[in-house]
Amino acid sequence: MTTVTPAAPRPGTLPLADLRAMFRRVPGHIDAATSGLPLTATADALRSALDAWTAGEATPATYDVSVAASRAAYARVAGVDVTRVAIGAQTSPLVGLVAAAVPDGGRVVVAEDDFTSVTYPFLAHADRGVTVRAVPVGHLAEAAADGCDVVATSLVQSRDGRVADVGAVRAAAARVGAVSLVDVTQAAGWLPLVPAPADHADVTVCSAYKWLCAPRGTAFATTTPAAAARLRPLAANWYAGDDPWASVYGTDMRLASDGRRFDTSPAWLSWVGAAPALDAFARVDVAAVHAHDVGLADDLRGRLGLDPAGSAIVSLADDDGSVRARLDAAGLRVAGRGGGVRLAFHVWNDSDDVDRVVAALDAA
Score class of each variant (00 low, 15 high):
F262M: 13
Y74Q: 06
L140P: 00
R230T: 14
R216C: 13
T34D: 02
H29P: 07
T251D: 10
P308L: 04
A188M: 11
D18N: 04
G161S: 03
A41D: 14
V151A: 00
G147Q: 09
A58H: 05
R25A: 10
M253E: 15
R324Y: 08
L231I: 09
T83Y: 03
A227Q: 08
A282F: 03
V77W: 00
R25M: 06
V203P: 00
A274T: 13
P38S: 13
A171T: 10
A214S: 12
D113P: 00
A144P: 03
G105Y: 08
S70T: 05
G177M: 13
P225E: 05
V286N: 06
D199R: 14
V272P: 01
D64Q: 05
T264G: 09
A235D: 09
T3G: 13
A32K: 00
A214C: 05
H346N: 11
V341P: 01
A45S: 12
L332C: 03
G321K: 06
L327G: 01
A228I: 11
H200R: 09
P93S: 06
P276V: 09
S117T: 08
A58R: 04
W245I: 10
V194Q: 01
A312K: 10
F23Y: 12
A126V: 11
R303A: 03
T223W: 08
A126S: 12
A297L: 11
F281G: 03
R24G: 07
D243H: 07
M1K: 07
L50F: 02
V169P: 01
A178M: 10
R356D: 13
H139A: 09
R261C: 14
D263M: 14
A297E: 15
V109L: 04
A134W: 14
S322G: 04
R47C: 13
V4Y: 13
V347I: 12
G339D: 11
L327R: 00
T223Q: 03
D285L: 11
S247V: 00
D298M: 08
S70G: 03
A172C: 06
D64E: 07
D362S: 04
A226G: 10
V137L: 07
D199K: 12
V130M: 10
A99E: 15
A240G: 14
G177E: 07
R133M: 12
V150T: 02
S207V: 04
A275W: 00
R356S: 09
R10T: 15
A236I: 12
G217I: 13
G321Y: 03
T222K: 06
V179P: 01
S180A: 07
T224P: 06
A246V: 02
D293K: 02
R260H: 14
A164I: 08
R303S: 00
R324L: 06
A86T: 01
D146Q: 13
T119F: 09
T42D: 08
W245D: 12
A288C: 06
V98Y: 06
L39C: 05
A100R: 09
P197V: 12
D355A: 10
R76V: 04
H29I: 02
V130P: 02
V176K: 13
F281H: 11
Q90P: 02
V26P: 04
R283P: 00
Q90L: 15
P308H: 15
V137R: 15
D51Y: 05
T59G: 05
D18R: 15
T119N: 12
M253F: 15
P225S: 10
L193E: 01
G96Q: 13
A275M: 02
A41Q: 07
A188C: 11
